[in-house]
Amino acid sequence: MNIFRLTGDLSHLAAIIILLLKIWKTRSCAGISGKSQILFALVFTTRYLDLLTSFISLYNTSMKFIYIGCAYATVYMIYAKFKATYDGNHDTFRVEFLVVPIGGLAFLVNHDFSPLEILWTFSIYLESVAILPQLFMISKTGEAETITTHYLFFLGLYRALYLMNWIWRFYFEGFFDMIAIVAGVVQTILYCDFFYLYVTKVLKGKKLSLPA
């Protein structure tokens, strides 16, 4: 464990909690892409099956349960509890165009052709593009609530911190996982446009609105 990975995990946890609280407190999931949240639930489910097979640490196990629990609670709130506030007309990204090719890629490019490893690889690839429906929805509505931009900021920051974690681990431990690194770079690059808008607008107190 190093400072980049710890702050990365805490940033990820912060993002997940911010979104959960936003929906719970405002009793509304306006502006939130349910499709992205389903993809995240799928990412955690396929990645954390090793909860059943191996124990790494209390921290590792408890964080995995928290992530999975929050992900499903968020999906439940969007599609059941606060369904009336779900903006399905703007959440129209064709996720099947993501899931199917990535499923194929996970079979072709992985570290080990075993079920758990292929599912882990699928999860890594899927996470790198899981935010696309959310970013697509914001581009369609042309704006995002400020609390949603904070959610996206911490979510994007977490993988950027993981990139630093992998540099640290390569230098000090000689450890590197090319699949996670390449997917992590793609994932972080997808947030660059948002990061620019976040820093130049939201941090200056303006509302995040895209040129419609």
Partner: peptide, 10 residues
């Protein structure tokens, strides 16, 4: 190989 198989990161 071994260290990749057991993924210790979240």
């Amino acid at each position: 190989k071994a260290d990749e198989a057991t993924h210790d990161e979240l």
